[in-house]
Amino acid sequence: MRRLIVSILVLLMPGAVVVSSQGRAVMPTSAHEFSFQSIDGSPLPLAQYAGKAVLVVNTASMCGYTPQYADLEALWQRYRDRGLVVLGVPSNDFGGQEPGSAEQIKDFCEVNFAIDFPLTEKQIVIGPKAHPFYQWAASELGQEARPRWNFHKYLVGPDGKLAGWFPTATSPQSSQVVKAVEAALDQPAVTLPPK
Results as ranks from 00 to 15, higher is better:
L4P: 02
I5R: 13
I8H: 13
L11W: 15
G15I: 00
V17G: 02
S20T: 15
A25W: 04
T29A: 09
F34D: 03
S35L: 00
F36A: 01
D40E: 12
D40S: 15
G41P: 07
S42G: 05
P43L: 07
P43K: 06
P43G: 08
P45F: 08
Q48Y: 04
A50H: 10
G51H: 03
K52S: 05
V54S: 07
V56F: 05
N58H: 10
Y65Q: 13
T66E: 06
Q68T: 07
Y69N: 02
D71E: 14
A74C: 08
A74K: 15
Q77I: 06
Q77V: 07
R82H: 12
L84N: 08
P90W: 09
D93G: 07
D93K: 14
E98L: 11
E98T: 10
P99Q: 11
A102H: 11
A102M: 04
E103P: 00
I105T: 13
K106Q: 12
K106A: 15
E110Y: 10
N112C: 00
N112W: 00
I115Q: 07
I115N: 08
I115T: 15
P118T: 14
L119P: 11
Q123D: 07
P128M: 07
Y134G: 01
S139M: 12
L141W: 03
R148F: 10
F151G: 08
V156M: 10
V156I: 15
G157C: 00
D159C: 01
F166V: 12
P167W: 01
P172W: 02
Q173G: 07
K179F: 02
A180C: 03
A180Q: 09
P188A: 06
A189N: 04
A189T: 12
L192M: 03
